[in-house]
């Protein structure tokens, strides 16, 4: 079992990259989710259509394919040098999950009961005021559990960045097991456990959010 004490420190070496990718993806994906979700509800046809294209494309294709595609296409097609694979990884995960979560944003806003909007109209609020004071406070409460679930998905997704050369937890796991073939099963098992430990606070958070979201919302 001394191997355990050898393996874990190796895996920890990848922690900074994993956490960095996760944090970056989280921030940008939530941002994108709100922008895209609200855009799909816009009364402007152009905004609505473009956003729909984005959402359908990123929801309809596979994350790993998007990752490789952006890795090769950005420099070649768009002459964009993001500086490092780190940003390619963050951007891909953010765009992918931003698309899924934009549907959560859109759905939550739509599912706030129609009566709430009507009460707002009866009180002569502007569309913006209704959104800000009545709809969004309730919609956000509904979004939280799903956002928490997607955060766990994004944590799992970070493992893919090892495929474009980033030195995350999985990378170091692969490295160690390639030189210690006999211990390969143990190494990968420990890698899984490592990710699970990272996921535990998120799982706890989701459970809390599910309780919190139940109160304070009027839905049909």
């Amino acid at each position: 079992m001394e191997t355990l004490s050898e393996i874990f420190p190796e895996l920890i070496k990848g922690l900074p990259i994993t956490l960095l990718v996760l944090a970056g993806s989280a921030v940008f994906s939530y941002l994108i989710a709100f922008i895209a979700g609200l855009s799909r509800l816009s009364r402007n046809v152009v905004i609505r259509t473009f956003t729909s294209f984005y959402v359908e494309i990123f929801r309809g294709t596979s994350l790993i394919v998007q990752l490789f595609w952006l890795y090769f296409a950005l420099p070649v097609l768009f002459d964009i040098d993001l500086g490092s694979e780190l940003w390619v990884g963050i951007l891909t995960i953010a765009l992918n999950y931003g698309a899924y979560m934009s549907e959560v944003v859109r759905g939550s806003i739509l599912s706030v009961a129609k009566g709430q909007t009507e009460a707002g109209i009866a009180l002569n609020m502007t569309r913006f005021q209704r959104m800000r004071l009545i709809i969004l406070p309730q919609a956000v409460r509904m979004m939280l559990p799903e956002f928490g679930n997607y955060l766990i998905q994004m944590l799992k997704a970070t493992s893919l960045v090892s495929l474009i050369g980033l030195m995350d937890v999985l990378y170091f796991g692969e490295l160690y097991s390639s030189t210690h073939i006999q211990q390969a099963p143990l190494v990968y098992l420990l890698t899984l456990i490592f990710y699970f430990i990272l996921a535990l606070p998120l799982i706890w958070f989701v459970r809390k959010m599910e309780a919190f979201s139940k109160k304070g919302v009027a839905s049909e």
Binding site: A113, G115, Q116, E118, A119, A122, L123, N124, M125, T126, Q129, L133, I134, P137, Q138, R141, K215, G216, V217, A218
Partner: peptide, 23 residues
């Protein structure tokens, strides 16, 4: 309204005050 449509995330007082203040 028939189904009240009160704002569940605000207190009763806040429900009454919201519109006059903002609108």
């Amino acid at each position: 309204f028939q189904h009240f449509n009160l704002f569940p995330h605000m207190t009763n007082l806040e429900n009454c005050m919201a519109a006059p203040i903002h609108v």
